[in-house]
C-alpha cells in the first residue's frame, strides 16, 4: 500500500519536501494554515544574492509539484497523535488524516521589532522593518519615506532581535546581514544620490557570492558600513530619525540623521508552533528552535521515529539552504519508510 506523509507548513521547505516525496512515490498531503502556499516568500520581493524574484521562485517551486499532492490550505493543525505505527493529524476545521510519517516544515516568525522599544518601531513613522521594505519594493511605487520624500539618507540596523541578550535571543538569524547588503544596494539603485549606512556588529557573509555582493556594496555603491550597535533612535520635527550609534572602529559616538531607518528583523521560532512540538514531546532547545536527533548525522530526524523536520523550524536558514534541507528530509523519510 502507498505510504502517506503529512507535511505541515507550505513555505519553501514544505513545498519542496512534498514535491520530492511525491516524486519518490509517496502519497503526500501538504497542510497550510494560511489561504495560500508560499509562506514568507510571498512577501519577499527579491532574494539575495541573485535578486531573483520571491514570487517567481515560489511559482517555480509550485510548478514542480506533482498533481497528486493534496494541498490542504486554511487549516491550522491542532493535534498530532502517535497511534501504534501511524500518526493522526487533525486541524481546527475538522480535517483529519492518518499518516505513516509527518514532516514539520512550520518555518519561522519574523522577530517583532516593537520589542526593541529603543528603536521606535511602531512609534516613529520612518522606522520600518526589512519585511516592510520588501513590501515597498514589491509595490513598484516610487521609493519615498512616510512623509512622501525621497530620503537623503537611509540607515540599516543589523541584528534586530538576533544575537541580543536583551530580547533573550542569542542566536544569529543568518540571513539578515546579506539581506541588508542586498536591500542597501536596491535603495542605492533607486536613489543613487542617497547616503546609505549599515550599522553592524560583524558581517557574516557565509554564503556563496555574499562576500562579492558586500564588496560591490562598498566599492560600486559606496554604502557605508559602520561597526556599532544603535543605542536609540528618536524623531525630529520633520519626521527624520536621529540615531545614536557608536563607531567602534573609530572609537567615537555618532549621531546621524536619516530619512528612513530599516530594522533587519531576525527569525524566531513561532510560539504557535510550540504547541505542536509540545504535543509530540519534541525538544525546543535554548534558542527555541526544534532540536534534530543529531545536528551532523541526522539533521532531519527528531527523537520521535516518523517525525521529521526541514527548513527554518530547526534554525534560521537562507532559502537555498532551506530547499536543500527539504530535499534531504524527503530522502530521510524514504529511508525510514523503506
Amino acid at each position: 500500500m502507498q505510504k502517506h506523509i503529512v507535511v505541515i507548513g507550505a513555505g519553501p521547505a514544505g513545498l519542496e519536501s512534498s514535491a520530492n516525496l511525491s516524486n519518490l512515490g509517496f502519497r503526500v498531503t501538504l497542510v497550510e494554515k494560511e489561504e495560500v502556499t508560499g509562506g514568507h516568500l510571498n512577501k519577499w520581493h527579491a532574494l539575495f544574492p541573485s535578486l531573483a524574484s520571491g514570487k517567481h521562485t515560489i511559482e517555480a517551486i509550485v510548478k514542480g509539484l506533482n498533481p497528486g499532492i493534496k494541498i490542504q490550505t486554511a487549516t491550522k493543525v491542532t493535534g498530532i497523535e502517535a497511534v501504534n505505527d501511524y500518526f493522526t493529524v487533525s486541524g481546527h476545521n475538522g480535517w483529519q488524516e492518518k499518516a505513516d510519517a509527518v514532516v514539520l516544515t512550520t518555518g519561522f516568525q519574523l522577530f517583532d521589532s516593537h520589542r526593541k522599544e529603543e528603536y521606535g518601531y511602531g512609534i516613529y513613522e520612518n522606522v520600518i522593518t526589512s519585511a516592510d521594505l520588501e513590501k515597498q519594493f514589491a509595490s513598484g511605487k516610487e521609493f519615498v519615506n512616510r512623509q512622501g520624500k525621497k530620503p537623503e539618507r537611509v540607515g540599516f540596523v543589523h541584528c534586530v532581535g538576533s544575537r541580543d541578550e536583551k530580547v533573550n535571543n542569542l542566536h544569529c538569524s543568518k540571513v539578515c546581514c546579506i539581506t541588508a547588503v542586498k536591500q542597501a544596494i536596491e535603495v542605492k539603485q533607486m536613489i543613487p544620490e542617497a547616503d546609505v549606512f549599515c550599522f553592524y556588529m560583524d558581517l557574516r557573509m557565509f554564503g556563496r557570492h555574499y562576500e562579492e555582493l558586500y564588496k560591490q556594496a562598498q566599492e560600486k555603491y559606496n554604502i557605508q558600513f559602520i561597526r556599532g550597535r544603535l543605542s536609540e533612535s528618536t524623531e525630529d520635527k520633520d519626521g527624520n530619525i536621529i540615531v545614536k550609534v557608536e563607531d567602534t572602529l573609530l572609537g567615537k559616538p555618532l549621531r546621524i540623521k536619516v530619512g528612513l531607518l530599516v530594522l533587519m528583523a531576525g527569525m524566531e521560532f513561532p510560539p504557535a508552533t510550540k504547541a505542536l512540538t509540545n504535543m509530540l514531546g519534541l525538544k525546543n532547545v535554548s534558542d527555541g528552535f526544534i532540536q534534530p536527533l543529531d545536528e551532523v548525522l541526522h539533521s532531519n530526524l527528531t527523537e520521535i521515529p516518523g517525525v521529521f523536520i526541514a527548513g527554518t523550524c530547526s534554525g534560521p536558514k537562507s532559502v537555498s539552504d532551506t530547499m536543500a534541507d527539504a530535499r534531504s528530509a524527503a530522502l530521510a523519510v524514504a529511508e525510514y519508510l523503506k
Binding site: E117, E118, I123, E232, T234, E235, D236, I242
Partner: peptide, 25 residues
Amino acid sequence: AEYPYVLSGMIEAWGGEVIDYPERR
C-alpha cells in the same frame, strides 16, 4: 524606560500636550 508615561499621563490629564524631541532620553 524608553517611553515613560508617569509624567506624560499627568500632563495629558491636566490639559497639556507632551513634546517628544530628539534628546528626550
